[in-house]
Design a protein around this nucleic acid. Structure first.
Lengths: 184, 184
DNA sequence: TGTACATCAGTGAACGCGCGTTCACTGATGTAC
DNA sequence: TGTACATCAGTGAACGCGCGTTCACTGATGTAC
């Protein structure tokens, strides 16, 4: 049956939000189109009214997540304290235990390598993240700010991925803690 | 038909080697049992003469790769120069472009999170890697050697994963280069 | 304002496909005598 | 040493399953008059 036109755009956004959350939680290949549609409260059929393919959704959800998560960074303060708080939040057990709401890169970087359809979007996101980090925080040397941002990002992403992969909570906590104190 | 008994063990090892290579290249879920068996020159049927399931192969191939790749680390020298050479090799474009022969953690850490069957093996490997790094290299402070090893590993793994995910070779090279110089 | 009709997002059965896994069969090897 | 037979890794067709995707159909909404 026909539905109010106003709901269409809202449903599109809801699919994107659910997809973004589920993909980060369980990976692109760990989530089916049907599951995403079920999470939005619909059957799988109308998926193709909104997106041309699962790959297209992957790309669009990645771009969608990119804009919202970079807004978080810009919302934080620019003081050295704000920078440390940002790092502490990123390397917190809360972030580790909630990948669905967390960093896109830590959740999906590995899988992106195998999905040609989303590498472009991911690259755009990473470039934006480096630029925002470089511009936003009070780096000791302006000249080295970009290199320092790249190093910070690599450390944080690597630590979070390892902390999430590991079976042993003590080791996982230790990784987060040591990388946190290394960045002070 | 029956085959020489001597070949059985050798075929088992060949399956493990091919699996270890293919899993690192394309991920656990990106490689099928049939592909692995084809790579060893057999049909898919006898797979279950060697392993009880794909998950069992994933676990065994991870343990198998662990022992061989940690041997590489022990084979390197213990001088500060050897340590820098190890880091440079890890963060080289050659390593980035050959995941099939490279670091297990950079290739599979993300997927391990979604595969309960291999998290234990992965954790064992990561612990061994931290211990070997800690004991093997000439860290400035013995007391902080373990924390420094964890930080080094996080940086290297994170940088390699990001460098591999990205679509843009200049950015990929930049990530490797900056993290390399940050570790000098 | 009321009526008749076209629209089109949602439904849910169905499609082909590749996956992990099973199994009846094959036939050279290893063993018993 | 030669013969008869049991063994068992490999073969390849077949299984059920869940996936991404398609499509004939439904029926409340929006539009034309």
């Amino acid at each position: 049956m026909r539905y109010p036109a106003s709901e269409t755009a809202e449903k599109h956004t809801r699919i994107l939000n659910e997809a973004a959350r589920l993909f980060r939680e369980r990976g692109f290949s760990g989530v089916s189109v049907s599951e995403i549609m079920k999470a939005t409260g619909l059957t799988h059929g109308p998926f193709y009214n909104h997106f041309t393919s699962k790959e297209a959704l992957m790309a669009e959800s990645l771009t969608h997540t990119s804009t919202t998560s970079l807004a978080d960074l810009e919302a934080s303060g620019q003081s050295p304290q704000a920078m440390l708080a940002y790092i502490d939040t990123y390397l917190s057990t809360d972030h580790r235990d909630a990948p669905g709401d967390g960093c896109l890169m830590a959740a999906l970087a590995s899988e992106v390598r195998h999905e040609p359809a989303v590498r472009g979007c991911f690259t755009t996101h990473l470039k934006a993240a480096i630029d925002k980090l470089t511009a936003h925080f009070p780096w000791p040397s302006k000249r080295r700010a970009r290199a320092d941002s790249i190093r910070l990002l690599s450390s944080m992403v690597g630590a979070l991925i390892l902390a999430r992969a590991v079976d042993d909570e003590a080791l996982s906590d230790e990784i987060l803690k040591e990388v946190r104190s290394g960045l002070r």
